[in-house]
Design a protein around this nucleic acid. Structure first.
Lengths: 154, 154
DNA sequence: AAAATATGTCAACATGGCTGACATAACTTC
DNA sequence: GAAGTTATGTCAGCCATGTTGACATATTTT
């Protein structure tokens, strides 16, 4: 028999619950990246290559500056992996038409194929998770993840 | 006017939706780690120190082997950061009672204080996200994250 | 006594962040 | 048209944190 609660209703879950969610997020992300990492190792690439390849594949014609903004890394860090992806034929560059200083980035056929292979385990994993949550799973997850992101970028 | 869909009803959300969730997870985790990272920099520590400190603080008496299992890194990687945390007085070690080979890990008062500071921005961020999702936010998020984790460890 | 276990340690290497400095080409502004 | 700004590239070096392999020590189990 514990004493009656002092407040009428809690305005938010106790910290203990939130700490559990924080840990789950850590484990989820750890496992989420494990699938692609294995494939990347076959190609001598790392997680950084994956990120670049993914965003270029998904947003063809992306500029270098856009990529820096998305990944929030320095141009020197980006250059290292981007150079390899270009040299090994996974990404192609074209000069912009209106402004010829900018480099527009595109995946080659090989790049698109690799991007496809890399995202496959993640599609399965996330697809399985939202399917398990029923019809509302996908929008619910989108709302939750969006709320975790810095306001400035939502 | 596009032709009528061939299937009656989709059994799961289209890949496009799942890809969006994958990207949101990337952005969410990126921002999720940014808060602690800033504090860690003040102490000359990195994200690896945070993980160790957190789990030791949360599960006092954790063994080294447990930590290796949780973090899924090698003992050499762990040793580097654990050694620093011990030397700088954030973590204390005690030999096990039944088996004196094992080292039981505990946070010191300073360690607990630092762990508290480090988790604070994450508590705020995750707390805000689940609050925005209403009463069912917290269990919904727990279910989704759990479903993202490898079955072997859930 | 021998084997297995828990942990620590040394050495070397790879990835992928970072800073700082400087170069080039192209666009914008005065 | 000269000067400044912008987009990008590049060189050099540093740091954090992951890896492998080998070996040491103390303790427990067989």
């Amino acid at each position: 028999m514990r004493p009656a609660p002092q407040q009428i209703a809690p305005t938010s879950p106790p910290d203990e619950t939130i700490v559990e969610l924080i840990e789950l997020l850590f484990f989820a992300y750890r496992d989420f990246t494990a699938g692609p990492d294995k494939i990347l190792a076959e190609f001598g690439f790392g997680r950084a290559h994956h990120r670049v390849l993914h965003f270029v594949n998904r947003y063809p014609g992306l500029r270098v500056a856009d990529l820096l903004d998305i990944l929030k890394i320095t141009k020197q860090s980006l250059a290292r992996v981007l150079k390899q992806l270009v040299e090994e034929g996974y990404i192609a560059q074209r000069a912009g038409t209106s402004d010829r200083r900018v480099r527009l980035l595109y995946t080659t056929a090989e790049g698109a194929a690799l991007a496809g292979r890399l995202i496959e385990p993640q599609l399965k994993r996330v697809g399985r998770a939202v399917a398990a949550a029923g019809d509302a799973g996908s929008p619910a997850m989108a709302r939750l993840l969006l709320a975790l992101i810095d306001k400035a970028e939502q």
